[in-house]
């Protein structure tokens, strides 16, 4: 029993060390939010541009955007990312259920969109752990966006 306990402690200890070794504290800037980590408004606009490029180039989901006013879409998406990440914006678009219900989206469409967003964040040199912080805010929208 003691043996089992000490092994458990060892496993946890090694794991904690592994996590700590890889933990890179974000620079302690004033207003140290996800918004600043994403590069502020400029960074978010750039990310939304790149991401939209990826969405429109992906045959799995590009058709969904056939009738979309892309300029408005980019503007609203940037606004939403800004607000979600703690920036000084107020999202003025439709709520997520209303914006997507007519599109009859499936879970695989959501996954495809997330994959494209990850590619875009990579191209914008956003660190993996920062990417996951943004994705953590978007993931629950699966509930409202996926209706099929």
């Amino acid at each position: 029993m003691y043996d089992a306990m000490s092994k458990a402690v060892l496993v946890v200890a090694v794991f904690v060390v592994a996590v700590m070794v890889n933990f890179r504290p974000a620079p302690a800037l004033a207003g140290d939010t996800l918004y600043t980590a994403l590069g502020g408004n400029e960074g978010i606009v750039r990310l939304v541009d790149k991401a939209t490029e990826e969405f429109l180039a992906d045959p799995r989901i590009s058709n969904t955007f056939a009738d979309t006013n892309i300029a408005r879409f980019k503007e609203k998406l940037a606004e939403q990312f800004c607000e979600l990440s703690g920036g000084p914006c107020v999202y003025s678009g439709q709520d997520m259920h209303a914006a997507h219900k007519g599109l009859k989206l499936r879970s695989r469409d959501f996954s495809a969109l997330v994959e494209n967003l990850q590619v875009a964040m990579g191209k914008c040199d956003i660190p993996f752990s920062t990417q996951n912080k943004l994705l953590a805010l978007l993931a629950p929208m699966h509930r409202d966006v996926v209706t099929q």
């Binding site: 794991f15 592994a18 996590v19 890889n22 990850q118 993996f128």
Partner: peptide
């Protein structure tokens, strides 16, 4: 722990 898109480290 997910280190990046291609690598995870862990314990069981």
């Amino acid at each position: 722990y997910l280190l990046n898109k291609h690598l995870a480290l862990g314990a069981e």
